[in-house]
Amino acid sequence: MKKKNVNSTSALKVMEERDINKVSSSQKVAKVFGQIGVYAFLGIMALIVLFPFYFMIISSLKSLEEYRLAVPTLIPQAWKFQNYTDILIPYEWAEANGWVGTVVSYDAVNNNFDLFTLFRNTMFVGIVSTIFSVVITVLSAFAFARLEFKGKNVLFAALLGTMMIPGELFTITNYATVMTKDGWFPNFFNGLGNMFGAFGPDFQLPMVDSSYAALIIPFLVSVFYIYLLRQNFLQIPNELYLAAKVDGTSDIKYLWKVMIPLALPTIISITILKMMGAWNSYMWPRLVANDEAHRLITNGLRNAFSDVSGNTDYPRQMAAVALVSIPLFLVFIFLRKYIMKGVSRSGIKG
């Protein structure tokens, strides 16, 4: 009976649509022109949106002389891939293989962009902070979604309340505790690092380095991701949990076997956004890890390829920018669905 009803309404809809689509030929012409207008508008906007990327790519493949031409070339006259190889291949390596002048040019104004170190630092910080962050988020979201305890609502409200406060308000004190030499934070982690000295004089867990700790630990908790995941967990029927309880399944097993698989898309979104956040982070790393050994990629990028007098080696700079952007584009291409879904739900960058 119900089924039939549905059929009849859909049939009605089809008829309606047919009626609406019965339009005169003049209207048809107007519609075509309208569509052309819409496509033209979107096309122009798309070109504007894409133009910086195009400019980045072509500039990164030009020689400095060509880049400086009064009438710019739309496509490089001579493709200078050395802009990329100069950044990617360390000088010692190139010299040992006899690549200088061929594969690499090394005529940069100031090649102070140590891509390898920056990349390693950023990946280390990104991966460690993402793993910890996701674990913490999942545990908290589960507690808020499924477990019953005193003060739950108050705590959750307090958690959401912290979201209203701009990060600058706690960044200042975090910075003060992290930066000052006699602050507890560096002392604690240096002390922890010294404990590992028992394994040998050179043994040091990178995580115990207070600069890495400062980059990772203060921002492990993301209240918004907890909120996001909790909402997702709440959509999973409670009956599953009750059934699991009846079977004597432990909470942690239920979380691992049922909740996480069911909420996997959201967790993946969170993971990707968190990684992207680490890749793009600028302000906090600039404050706490602005030294050669710990600098992250965005901070290293900003000051690279310009010398004291302000002369900038634009093609090489653009090559570096492209190298920083390419991983993001790759992630985007392969995980577009998760990113767009995550962004539209969370509405925050990184």
Binding site: P52, Y282, T298, L301, M318, V321, V324, S325, L328
Partner: peptide
Amino acid sequence: VTNSIAIGM
């Protein structure tokens, strides 16, 4: 999906 410092440059 860009780095706002990088594209700013």
